[in-house]
Structure formats: structure tokens, C-alpha cells
Simulated scan of single mutants.
Amino acid sequence: MKPFVLLATRPEDVPADEEYALFLRYSGLDERDLIRVRLEAEPMPRFDLDELSGIFVGGGPFNASDPWKSAVQRRVEAEFAALLDEVVKRDFPFLGACYGIGTLGAHQGAVIDSTYREPVSVIEVDRTPEGRADPLLAGLPDRFTAFVGHKEAVSQLPASATLLARGEGCPVQMFRVGVNVYATQFHPELDVEGITTRIHAYADHG
């Protein structure tokens, strides 16, 4: 099997390592099959998509709507924009969680702001009719619980996106572009232990 890639941006080692472990656990992959790249520490490699099975994006400290951005954040955003040009054009398998919805949303022209920010919490997520027909959500109930915690969110989807799941406090919880390019506002990789680690790691981050 060709490997998957996890593109990560967390500078703190403990939550970064746990994020990788959670993606391994819930994807069923092992370390040989899930290559982690910590973009806050190194530039994004030039990927040959023909040599990969798919791309995951985890959460992180960057926000598309940040009024001030560091040189590292600007580099990471430029690298994602170039990667997503190819991913969307080829309809290459992609799943962005939390920060991933900001990268894909910004690439597609979504409106992203603080209107629908959510504190760290467990919420109810509802599948839309399109979500009920989507193969990635097959087997899930029409309403399910998920972990969230974010300072920004998509407040207006572009025409290229299909809304798959919504929440009461944040209307865009999951969308798809094309057939294989997905993004979630909630964290599909998180469990109670994982979110507890992040609460302690980011307690002073507002």
C-alpha cells in the first residue's frame, strides 16, 4: 500500500505526538503507512501524489483569519495553497480536520471568520441529506457527537463545496469538494484522553 501523509502544525511536542498517535489509532495505519510532516518546524516536501494514498491535515494554532501572521504561518499557508491546487484539480483523497477546514475553505474562497467559534466541548452534529448519501459518513447515525474547539469557522461556503454536516452553534461542520476532498470542523481523530491533553496544553491560549 502507498503511504498516507499527516501534515501537522502543532509546535508543542506532547499534543503533536498524541495527535499523530490518534490518527494512527483511528485510521488503522501503522507508522510505516502514515508519514508525519511537522510544518511548523520544516518546509513542506514536494509530494508526488502518485506515490501517496491520501493526505490528512490535523489541527493547530494557525487561523486563516488571523490579523497578524508570522513568517512561518505565511509559509505554511502558501505551501497549502500550492498543494491544494493539485489536490483539488486531481480530486486526490484529502481529509483536513479543524485547521484543515480553514486551509481548504480559504483555497476555495469560503468566508472564514470568528462568527461561529466554539469553545472546547462536545457537540451534536447532524448529517445533511448529502451527508447521509456520502460514503465517508456511511454507518454513522444522522446525529452524532464530536469534539470541537476553534477560534474561527466557515461562515459562508463557496459554490464548489457540498455541505455534509452541520451543528447548532457552527453551521459548517463538514464539507466536500469534488468526490474525494473533505474537511471537518470537528475532530474525528479525538478521544477523551486526547482532548484532555489539548485542554492542558492550550489552557493559556485563549
Rank of each mutant, 00 (worst) to 15 (best):
A159Y: 04
F56G: 00
F92L: 01
I112T: 05
D142L: 04
V111Y: 05
T103G: 03
L49T: 11
E79Q: 14
P67V: 08
G131L: 06
Q108Y: 02
G105W: 04
R117N: 09
S155A: 13
F144W: 14
E152Y: 04
W68R: 13
F47H: 09
Q156T: 09
R74V: 12
V87C: 05
G105P: 05
D85T: 05
S70W: 01
G139Y: 10
H150Q: 07
G100D: 06
E118S: 10
V57W: 01
D91P: 12
S114V: 04
I101Y: 03
V57D: 00
I55N: 10
K89M: 07
D113R: 01
G60L: 03
A110V: 08
V87I: 15
Q73P: 02
I112W: 03
A78V: 05
E152S: 11
L137R: 04
A81P: 00
K151C: 06
E124S: 14
P141G: 14
G131H: 07
R75T: 08
V88M: 07
L52I: 13
E118V: 07
V120E: 09
W68P: 00
R117K: 15
R117H: 12
G59V: 10
E152L: 03
V120F: 13
Q108S: 15
G149V: 11
D85G: 09
